[in-house]
Design a protein around this nucleic acid. Structure first.
Lengths: 334, 334
DNA sequence: TTACATAATGGCAACGTTAACATTTGGGCG
DNA sequence: CGCCCAAATGTTAACGTTGCCATTATGTAA
């Protein structure tokens, strides 16, 4: 076997096929102005030499990378896998690739995510925010770099997209009220969670909108254990016929906590969660919950960048509603 | 505001700073052979113009992208998030970026993953295999493109890395035998899962190595429901004192199934799962399980590519053992 | 036959960067 | 004062690709 040349370029293919470099390029792009037999000859040469177009040369020439950068502060997080599925799907649709970067060890600012990205071959960037970056208010996206933030907070200069947490709470509370419950108790989450706080607000607002003063909430910490404790605490409250938990783990924990105090779900108390994360993990329950479409969130973000194609499209804010999935943990009191 | 120039290059910075392009380049790379005051002048010019180095030009010149491509057939999958965490961490360590590609809609072959990658700016690639690609035996990696497969099957031309499923079963079975159990029953998974089959083999082999003929296994389908059914079936078997389930969902389902037949865990039957995926979802149990280090798997893969730095390092096969995490679902019979 | 349109192909330059080499400048020392 | 060395900076070319324009074949109408 001959020594492998560092890299095969159009020039090599052109020489072997006996055509100009330009004709090779045209063949690569399947231009109609190359004779079929010429194309075939060029293709044969490409195969023989193992030619593959050089991305750097191409991007340099074109000034575009056909790539969207994704910056994450924490990669492990509920829904991130689905979001990535969305990124990848949308990118694929537009012929784009995704470049993933973890912004970690660096300060939690949009600026650091942005500067990390600026040296990478990307045409635009998506930042997944888990909590509030220090410079959220003052951040300016890099010129020429379309920037989309995955967050429910609106930003004056960047488009944003996220699950609609407010609407989620509205759906759950109204669903329970429609089923005849007089009020809805709430198991919340730690106060630093943006999405959790929005759920809490939504719960409160919806109750008030229906003329109901929200009862005292029970603060949890996302774990089933905290839900269990909350369930036990609420078991003795006679006004409590419906509980809305900020995630499924707490909802399931709550059910078990209620059961430990002799209350049955849904006969005595109805329970609803959020996230649809129990899936196939729990055998005995089909929890009523809200399923978010994180894939769609991811797709929207990449569509916004890859779909724009150089057009300076305006700043947009998108909230994508979840879907309430009926299980067997809610009793109809009507 | 002045019209934004398409892109700011070293040339522009050089002109403004009154130095040569080379000096700008040297400043970017913080070369010691540029006078500090010159550097400062150049830096000021860079700031003023908003210069950021062009990745395409740089890669073209250097012939390297400092990027590792990751091809996935299915993005959603147990452990993928942790693996990505590993990819990103290792890439960060080496100053590399990660480019993610979904190989979907295309045929399930290594060839299609490979050709998809070949047009992207990557120096090497990682393929996450969930099942057996049609061309696994015949596949040849692209010349010059270091390719690592995430699979437990060894490949003659590509390095491979994965969790050690065999060892996982060995650990679980020996742990149970050491705790005085005479045999270990097994709840398996669908036969098309590579990792599941390897767990099954490991279970069988370890029992045989200890002179025990493996009992009839119960086939599950990864869901808690199937584990529940398996638990009910095994509840009536007096020889069954220890059950090893192929994942945590089935293990948890199994526990509940046993309980539904009046058996207590761990008093009557011990149960062990795999994956450590129950985490904070279940309030009342700390399942004994095996935790895999998918992050390390991911890091190994990227290290292999980014750490090589052009050196043609040999094909290696790496299996990374999991860690048995003791919960409260195993009874010591000794 | 000539003129002229059309199809197919070729030549050249430029994208932004940096390695290699070339040049200038400033000092130290005989 | 001249020599040489080192530090600092400049010049040139090339990486691979493709847009633009020029050129050459091929056919078609006047």
């Amino acid at each position: 076997m001959a020594a492998v040349k560092k890299s095969v370029s159009v020039k090599d293919v052109a020489r072997l096929a006996g055509v100009s470099e330009q004709t090779v390029s045209r063949t690569v792009h399947d231009s109609p102005s190359v004779r079929p037999e010429t194309k075939e000859r060029v293709r044969a040469a490409m195969r023989e030499l193992g030619y593959r177009p050089n991305f750097a040369g191409r991007s340099l020439r074109r000034g575009k990378f056909k790539t969207v950068g994704v910056a994450m502060f924490n990669i492990t997080g509920t829904g991130n896998l689905d979001r990535m599925e969305g990124f990848a799907a949308a990118a694929d649709k537009h012929g784009y690739a995704i470049t993933l970067t973890k912004v970690d060890g660096h300060p939690y600012t949009l600026e650091s995510a942005s500067s990390r990205m600026s040296a990478l071959p990307v045409d635009g960037m998506v930042v997944i925010m888990n909590r509030m970056p220090a410079d959220f208010g003052t951040f300016e996206p890099l010129p020429g770099m379309q920037t989309v933030l995955v967050t429910m907070l609106e930003h004056p200069l960047c488009s944003t997209v996220d699950n609609d947490q407010s609407d989620c709470s509205r759906q759950v509370v109204e669903y329970l009220l429609e089923h005849g419950h007089k009020t809805v108790h709430f198991i919340s989450c730690p106060e630093r969670s943006l999405s959790g706080m929005r759920r809490e607000e939504g719960w409160r607002e919806t109750l008030r909108a229906h003329g109901i003063e929200p009862p005292q909430l029970v603060r949890g910490d996302w774990t089933a254990q905290s839900g269990y404790a909350a369930g036990q605490a609420l078991a003795d409250d006679p006004t409590c016929t419906a509980i809305y938990a900020s995630n499924d783990a707490m909802a399931y924990g709550c059910i078990r906590g209620l059961e430990s105090r002799g209350k049955c779900v849904p006969q005595d108390v109805s329970v609803v969660g959020v996230d649809d994360s129990l899936g196939d993990i729990v055998p005995d329950r089909r929890l009523t919950t809200v399923r978010f479409d994180n894939k769609r969130v991811g797709m929207w973000a990449v569509d916004k960048i890859a779909g724009a194609e150089g057009v300076v499209s305006g700043v947009e804010h998108m909230l994508i509603p979840g879907v309430l999935v009926e299980g067997d943990t809610v009793r109809d009191l009507r």
